[in-house]
């Protein structure tokens, strides 16, 4: 018991790093994803095509590779980022692409009649998006966004290659030092607790949006 308690503290510290990375990534990649989705469906072909290419590259190559690229390759171009910033940058750029494709599909699933009703009432394009289309899109994309968010909780563990003391690295450090597998189990419990909370939050959101049918 004593032993477990002594392990909890460094693991909790690691969890804070993991949670920070998770929260900042989510907070930045959701709005960026929406902007990318709007650019992707824009009638301006070069813009739309550029974002299509971007999404393909980000979703079509390993996140680990992107992480290493940001961390090791950018400095050789003279761009020096602190560890945390490098990790956040790589995660945000990658997750925004996933969210963008989810949002795009959500927006395109809204019936044409909604745009026409808004236009007939005098809405501008921006007003139509902000008040009519995006709010309805959110309801429809909650399940896939929830899945991505759970994946993000687990993907944060990839930063252990960057020598950041996240939950996984904290666990591994103790395991290697003490030849005891317990920290891995504790870390698993921590990850499960986080994904459990994320699941509950999304269940609540889905219930909230169930107040209306389509």
């Amino acid at each position: 018991m004593e032993k477990i308690l002594s392990m909890i503290y460094p693991l909790a510290e690691g969890s804070v790093v993991t949670l920070q990375l998770f929260a900042v990534t989510l907070l930045l990649s959701l709005p960026l994803g929406l902007l990318l989705a709007l650019a992707r469906i824009s009638k301006i072909k070069p813009l739309s095509k550029t974002v299509e290419l971007y999404n393909w590259v980000m979703r079509g190559s390993p996140l680990m590779l992107q992480l290493l690229f940001v961390y090791f390759a950018l400095p050789s171009f003279g761009i020096l980022l602190p560890d945390v910033a490098a990790a956040v940058l790589a995660f945000v750029l990658n997750y925004a692409a996933y969210f963008a494709e989810i949002f795009r599909a959500g927006i395109q699933s809204i019936q044409k009649g909604q745009y026409e009703a808004a236009r007939a009432l005098g809405f501008t394009y921006v007003q139509t998006m902000r008040r009519i289309i995006v709010p309805q899109m959110i309801k429809r994309v909650l399940p896939p966004v929830g899945n991505e968010t759970i994946t993000l909780v687990k993907d944060t563990s990839l930063v252990y290659v960057l020598a950041m003391n996240d939950l996984l690295r904290a666990a591994r450090t103790i395991v290697q030092r003490e030849f005891d597998m317990t920290p891995f189990f504790i870390a698993a419990v921590f990850y499960l607790a986080m994904t459990f909370i994320v699941t509950r939050v999304f269940n609540w959101l889905e219930k909230h949006y169930a107040r209306y049918d389509e």
């Binding site: 009649g113 909604q114 026409e116 009703a117 009519i132 709010p135 309805q136 209306y212 389509e214």
Partner: peptide, 11 residues
Amino acid sequence: MVFQQFNLFPH
């Protein structure tokens, strides 16, 4: 304008 399919805002 009034449409055949109503097109009310469901949300």
